[in-house]
C-alpha cells in the first residue's frame, strides 16, 4: 500500500494512494462541501461543490473523484472557490421551488445547511418556478419534485445497494425529472421494494416518509454506509 503526502489548505497530510482528495481531507478534519456524494455509492462528480484548486493545474478539480498525488498542494477554500460554491447553491435554490419554511426537511436539510455554510441569504438569480408534481401514491413514502436537486443519490442507492433500479432520470437539461419505472406513479412502480433507502439517501425534502413531522424526518445516512460496509466485510456471516 503506497502512501502519498500532500498538503490541503497548508496542512501536511498523508493518504493512501487510492484515496480521493475528499476522503483524505475528511480523515484530517478538513470539510469540503458536497451534495451528490454519498458514502456507500459511486461518485459521479455532478454537483461541482467539492471543486478544489490544485497548484499547477489551471482547471478546478472535483475532490470526490480526484485521487491524491505525491506533493499535491490542494486549496479548498480560496476566494474564487467560495464565490463559485455560493453561486452553485444559489442556482440550485433558483432552479426549483425550495421553500424551507414549508418543507418537511426544514432544519436537517443538506441543501439548507449548504446555504448557511456558504453564507447565502438570498438567490441573486431569477426563480425559474417550474411546475413540479408531488407524488404520494406510495403508501409509505412520497416524492416532491419541487425539492429535488437531481443529485442522483436515490438513483444510485436504489441501483447499487438495493439492486432494484426503480429510480432513474427522464428527459435532459433543466427538464430532467426523477422517475420510477416507466414514468408511473411511485405507488404503481412494480420494481420498488419499499426498502426506504432512497428516503435515507435524499439530501433534501424531495423524498420523505409520509405522516412524519418535521422533527421525525431526520434521515440517517450512516445506515446506508453500514449496509455497504457490512456487505463488503461480510459482517453478517458469523
Amino acid at each position: 500500500m503506497a502512501v502519498k503526502t500532500l498538503t490541503i489548505d497548508g496542512k501536511a497530510i498523508s493518504a493512501r494512494e487510492e484515496q480521493t482528495i475528499l476522503q483524505a481531507a475528511r480523515e484530517n478534519g478538513i470539510t469540503i462541501p458536497t451534495l451528490c456524494q454519498l458514502n456507500g455509492t459511486s461518485d459521479i462528480g455532478a454537483c461541482r461543490l467539492c471543486l478544489v484548486e490544485v497548484a499547477g493545474i489551471p482547471k478546478l478539480l472535483p475532490a470526490c473523484v480526484t485521487r491524491v498525488g505525491e506533493g499535491m498542494e490542494v486549496s479548498t477554500d480560496s476566494e474564487r472557490i467560495r464565490e463559485y460554491r455560493k453561486m452553485i447553491v444559489e442556482l440550485l435554490f433558483a432552479e426549483r421551488n425550495h421553500v424551507c419554511a414549508a418543507c418537511v426537511e426544514n432544519g436537517h436539510c443538506e441543501l439548507q445547511d449548504l446555504a448557511i455554510s456558504v453564507g447565502m441569504d438570498h438567490s441573486r438569480y431569477d426563480y425559474m418556478n417550474p411546475k413540479c408534481a408531488v407524488d404520494i401514491t406510495h403508501p409509505r413514502y412520497g416524492i416532491d419534485h419541487n425539492r429535488c436537486v437531481l443529485c442522483g443519490r436515490c438513483v444510485r442507492v436504489c441501483d447499487e445497494i438495493e439492486g432494484a433500479h426503480t429510480w432513474d432520470f427522464q428527459g435532459r437539461g433543466a427538464n430532467t425529472r426523477t422517475i420510477s419505472d416507466m414514468f408511473v406513479p411511485w405507488g404503481q412502480a412494480a420494481s420498488c421494494t419499499s426498502c426506504g433507502k432512497c428516503v435515507q439517501a435524499c439530501p433534501t425534502g424531495a423524498i420523505f416518509r409520509r405522516g412524519s413531522t418535521v422533527a421525525e424526518m431526520k434521515k440517517d445516512r450512516t445506515r446506508l454506509d453500514f449496509i455497504v460496509t457490512a456487505r463488503e466485510k461480510k459482517q453478517w456471516i458469523a
Partner: peptide
C-alpha cells in the same frame, strides 16, 4: 433492462 432506464434513455 430496468424499465426506468429504458424510459430514461428514450426521453434523453
Amino acid at each position: 433492462v430496468p424499465p426506468s432506464r429504458v424510459y430514461g434513455v428514450a426521453t434523453f
